[in-house]
Amino acid sequence: MFVGLSVAGHVLAVGVWLVLGWLFAGPRMELDQKPIKASLVRLGKPRDDKLLPRKEEEPPPPPPKKVEEVPVVGPKPPDTAIKIPSKDAKPEKEQKKNLFDALNKTGKQAKPEELEGEADGDPNGDAAKQEGEKYYGLLRSVVKRNYDVSNTIDEAERRRLRAEVAFRIGNAGELLDVDVTKPSGNELFDEAVLAAVKKAAPFTPPPEHIRDELKKNGVAIVFTP
C-alpha cells in the first residue's frame, strides 16, 4: 500500500518536474557554437621603480647536452630507429639527401603570404617585386637565426668586425656555393658568418622572377656583430 503510494508520488513529482522544465526551458543549446576561450591576463601595474630589477628571461640554460656515444647492446634496433654514427661509419649521403628533400618539400609548402593591395599602390601591381623583397627578408631572418659567434672574441675587437659573405641559391632553394668575399680579418668571425649561411641552407625555393638572379649573381650579406 505504502510502496504503491510512494511510487505514485515519485512518478507524479518527476512528471511535474519534466513539464515545468519543458515550459520554462532556457535558450536552446547552440551545438555549432565555437568554444569561448578565456585566458588569464595580468592587469597588474608596472614594477615599482624603487624595487630591484628581476630578470625577465630565465638565466640561459646550461650548454646543450653533449653527443653521447650509446653502446648498442643486444638485438639490433629496427631499421626505423635513428642510427647512431659509429666510429668508422661515413655520413650517409642517401639519408642526408632524403632529409633535405623532406625539408625542401616543407619549404615549398610554405608559400609567401599574399599581400593586400595598397590604396596608393602601383595600378599594374607590384606583387612580384614585393614578393622578392619578402624573400630577401626571409633569407635575412633564417640566416640571422644561425648567426652564432664565439664569445672568445675580445669585446674591443667586436666593434670593428665586418665581413661579407656571398652565395648563390638554386631553384629548389639549395645552396649552390658560398664564400667570404670580404673577410673581417678575424678568422673566428669569418668562420662563424660562413657557418651561419651554411646552417641556414637549404632555403625556401625563391619566387620565380628572382630565381635567375639568385642563381647567377647570388646574394651578399654584410655581417656586423
Partner: peptide
C-alpha cells in the same frame, strides 16, 4: 627589410647584425 636591401653590382646585398655570442 626594403631599407636594408641594397642593390649593387647586380647582386642584392643584405645587412645582418645582432650576433648571438655564445661559448
Amino acid at each position: 627589410v626594403v631599407s636594408s636591401v641594397v642593390f649593387a653590382q647586380g647582386r642584392t646585398t643584405l645587412e645582418i647584425s645582432g650576433a648571438n655570442f655564445r661559448p
